[in-house]
Design a binder for these strands. Structure first.
Lengths: 336, 336
DNA sequence: CTCATTAAGTTAAACGTTTACTTTAATAAA
DNA sequence: TTTATTAAAGTAAACGTTTAACTTAATGAG
């Protein structure tokens, strides 16, 4: 026996499907008695509405798609967590899409999401290519960018101000008395997370009258291995430094590990500040001082914005720069 | 102008919708000439099929639902990664469902998944209550369990043998010459991940003629704080020990941190082995020796099994015990 | 030339809802 | 009593596909 449909309920309650539908939606146009009959039939048959059929007529699926470059990173999953939380609260489901490195599957996924008629899209941590923008535009659903942005197209985004956050981190080290400050950066070609952090660092130095020395910054590609390599390079080639700003926690940890191996004490011999505040930043020893990005909250905000765009069909775009904050743990200390 | 439908294509190509549908599905019953016309119309109109409408008639949505207790844990996201990877390869989308602690939202989500007509369900890391089982049974879709199992119901699962893995970890310490071995466990009430690991530990001791001392095991609830608390308790109350088996990496790290704070050198003074091999196990210093659970692969396997269950409608259940392995890093050393 | 076969195509029902429109009957107002 | 009003329902179209059943015309066999 197949699952009960609204027709079965109607038959069992001896009314029309329209009436059943009305009862189920709490509309008007039926007596208390009919309502009882209907409810009883629903109960007996274990009826559950079919959202697919509903979606077909409403042209609404109550589903959003979320695109990530790496689903499994701690980073993405924190954002996802926030998105999912709000979505479910508001009656939406979320389809996760792993676009893989370089957005290899982005176009493919965009098409799937279109065919599946999602009501909106969250696009995270990847640069929004023109091609993507066009595809999304054709779908005529709202998008919201998280942890990325587009200067070319007016699309609402949620992100922290990387430049400012990097400035903050660097300035913090300076306030602690450091003047020889190295940096492990992301790729300067990355205009979203790479360049701005590098520039924030430079600006902070400049504003404090500290000379920028190019050999004091090394690119670590945001990951652990990159961090250790960059640290080794810095130790070998850069003029001595008493503090280090790493543009990601992973790189910070890579750097800490080589320091540890070489007997460089943290924070006594070297102060380190990271960026991201991933879960493990507080797990390592000593716990990492870092820039906290409120990822879960950013996910929530994005979800909320997107859904209001969907429901109110409002056309106004509003982006949010969410504020980072610096969490002081134990890897930075004042220079005497 | 609304998105083009198959009717629009039919009109533009001057054929019936049935014909369009057939050429789109590469069936027979049309000439080359018509195919050209249709393809051209598709092109011009930018037609994309509507999966919702298709789902309604096919009774297939090409979508699976995945239930997790914590979406944001590194643990879950590795599994999700594997699931998503295979799913997309096979043309399925995945809806993520965060059931929250204690499965507070599990029933609610099961209902959503039913209404959305998912074709199958992956249920992870949570005990399958009777209530859940009934709900899923009523949906008449295949389920597969990951990282959990049910002795009561015959449902295929993918997991490692926790008892055996814990035995392995403990035995490894013993082979390294340790005989005073403490354990930080999960809750013994947890029959999936808690008890079996504890029993694996006990069994390994027994098989090697080592007495089990109750005060040498402390419950750390699988998380960091629990790990640090348990470690403190052990240090204070347990008879001295030279090695420690922690039933999760997080707890292992918690323990390592208190060791570090108290000047206990790892592995010189104390050997530690963890369980899970989360991403950060190799990031910390010294890198953690631990039991590797192939989470991504488990996700892949689950996805594959589920989809074959969906597609072949085969009714045979086959579970997989996947093999863990011990990854030797730098937190264990032989006792002289 | 007739009949069967086949290829190329069309028609229309079905999937499970929602909803605009219509009908029916009861009640109230005049 | 007649007419308007209202509440309680029913009817049927629509959403965008797929597909079984049917039609038409061309081809070939006998």
């Amino acid at each position: 026996m197949n699952p009960a449909t609204i027709k079965d309920v109607a038959k069992a309650a001896d009314v029309s499907v329209a009436t059943v539908s009305r009862v189920l939606h709490n509309l008007t146009g039926y007596s208390d008695k009919t309502k009882q009959k209907v409810m009883q039939a629903v109960e007996e048959l274990g009826y559950q509405p079919n959202a697919i059929a509903r979606g077909l007529v409403n042209k609404r699926t109550q589903t959003i798609g979320v695109l990530f470059p790496h689903v499994s990173s701690s980073f993405s999953s924190d954002i996802l967590h926030g998105i999912e939380e709000i979505a479910q609260e508001k009656g939406f489901s979320v389809i996760v899409c792993n676009t893989a490195e370089e957005g290899k599957r982005t176009m493919k996924y965009l098409q799937v999401l279109r065919e599946k008629q999602v009501d909106g899209i969250v696009f995270t941590s990847e640069v929004l290519k023109d091609e993507y923008f066009q595809a999304i535009k054709e779908m005529r659903v709202p998008v919201i960018l998280v942890n990325t942005m587009s200067q070319k197209h007016m699309i609402p985004y949620v992100k922290v101000d990387d430049h400012q956050a990097a400035y903050h981190a660097t300035d913090y080290l300076i306030q602690k008395g450091h003047r020889e400050i190295a940096m492990i950066s992301g790729s300067p070609k990355d205009r979203i997370a790479g360049l701005p952090r590098l520039e924030g660092y430079r600006q902070a130095l400049a504003d404090n009258g500290i000379e920028y020395i190019e050999s004091r910054v090394a690119n670590g590609d945001f990951n652990l291995e990159g961090g250790t390599e960059a640290m080794k390079k810095l130790l070998a080639e850069a003029p001595p430094f008493t503090a280090l700003f790493a543009a990601s926690d992973e790189m910070a940890i890579g750097a800490m590990n080589v320091a540890l191996e070489r007997g460089i004490k943290i924070p006594d011999d070297l102060s380190i500040i990271g960026y991201d505040d991933l879960k493990f930043a507080r797990m390592i020893y000593p716990p990492l001082t870092t820039i906290h990005q409120p990822l879960t909250m950013m996910g929530r905000m994005a979800s909320e914005k997107l859904i209001s765009l969907i429901e109110e069909d409002s056309t106004q775009v509003s982006s949010s720069i969410v504020s980072h904050h610096l969490v002081e743990r134990q890897t930075v200390r004042s220079k005497p």
